[in-house]
């Protein structure tokens, strides 16, 4: 799966969590722009983990602040 595919799939996964309909760009941040609280983060991460059959540990999550970083992290986890 290339980066564009990962991007497209995560874009559709994020929709139910994007309550205010914020336009998603590479630099869109989860805590700031999307106002995700810890519960939302857990559900969103679980959705991604199940979709791609990967683990994104909390240690890895700490490094991910925006949408672009998430796409990169998922691409990398898939290759591992």
């Amino acid at each position: 799966m290339d980066r564009a595919d990962v991007d497209a799939r995560i874009r559709s996964l994020i929709e139910p969590f994007n309550k205010k309909g914020i336009a998603i760009a590479e630099a869109t941040t989860f805590a700031g722009d999307l106002e995700f609280d810890s519960l939302t983060v857990m559900d969103f991460v679980a959705a991604i983990e199940d979709e791609f059959d990967i683990i994104i540990s909390m240690n890895q999550q700490a490094e991910i602040e925006n949408f672009g970083q998430l796409i990169d992290a998922v691409c990398k986890l898939q290759d591992d």
């Binding site: 559900d43 240690n59 890895q60």
Partner: peptide
């Protein structure tokens, strides 16, 4: 978990 170095994976 925070005091150690392990990978931390929570579930619902």
């Amino acid at each position: 978990c925070s005091l150690g170095n392990a990978q931390v994976v929570p579930f619902k």
